[in-house]
Nucleic acid binder design. Structure first.
Length: 117
DNA sequence: GCTGTGACTTTTT
DNA sequence: TAAAAAGCCACAG
C-alpha cells in the first residue's frame, strides 16, 4: 500500500490505507494497531490507526473488531453498537474472548508485514 | 494554519 | 509489579 502512484504525498490518505489492510485480516484472526501502522511505514502512528477505526464505524466493509491493542485487549469495544458488540463478533468468527481479552492471542495474531509480505 | 485530540506504545517512576 | 508520563502524528474544527 503506502503512497499510491499518481497520488501526491499531500493527498496521501492514511486512513484509506488502514482500511485496506484491516479488510485483509482473515476471519478468525486479529491484528494490532501497531502492526498495521508499522506495515504502512508509520511505526509511530499506532494511535492514528485507532483513530481511523473510530471513523470507520459507518463502513461495514471494515472489520474493525479484528483490530485490538498489542496485548490482545478489546480496548475499543465501547465504540461498537451495543447490539453488535466487538467480542460477540469475534466469538462468532471462532475467536475466544474472555473479559475483553483475546485468548491465545499470539496464535490468533495476524501480522500484515509477515503474512502479507 | 494553529490547536486539540485519541480504539496506542514505550519508557520512566 | 503497577501506575504515570511522555512520545507520536494525521485529522477535524
Amino acid at each position: 500500500m503506502k503512497t499510491k502512484p499518481g497520488r501526491g504525498k499531500h493527498d496521501y490518505r492514511f486512513f484509506e490505507d488502514v482500511y485496506e489492510v484491516v479488510k485483509l485480516i482473515p476471519a478468525g484472526r486479529v491484528s494490532t494497531y501497531g502492526a498495521i501502522a508499522r506495515y504502512l511505514g508509520a511505526a509511530r502512528s499506532a494511535r492514528m490507526v485507532g483513530y481511523a477505526m473510530n471513523k470507520c464505524m459507518d463502513r461495514p466493509d471494515v472489520p474493525a473488531h479484528r483490530v485490538v491493542n498489542r496485548n490482545g485487549m478489546l480496548t475499543g469495544r465501547h465504540h461498537f453498537s451495543p447490539e453488535f458488540p466487538m467480542d460477540e463478533r469475534l466469538r462468532r468468527e471462532g475467536v475466544q474472548v474472555v473479559d475483553d481479552q483475546v485468548q491465545e492471542f499470539e496464535k490468533r495474531f495476524w501480522d500484515p508485514q509477515r503474512e502479507l509480505l
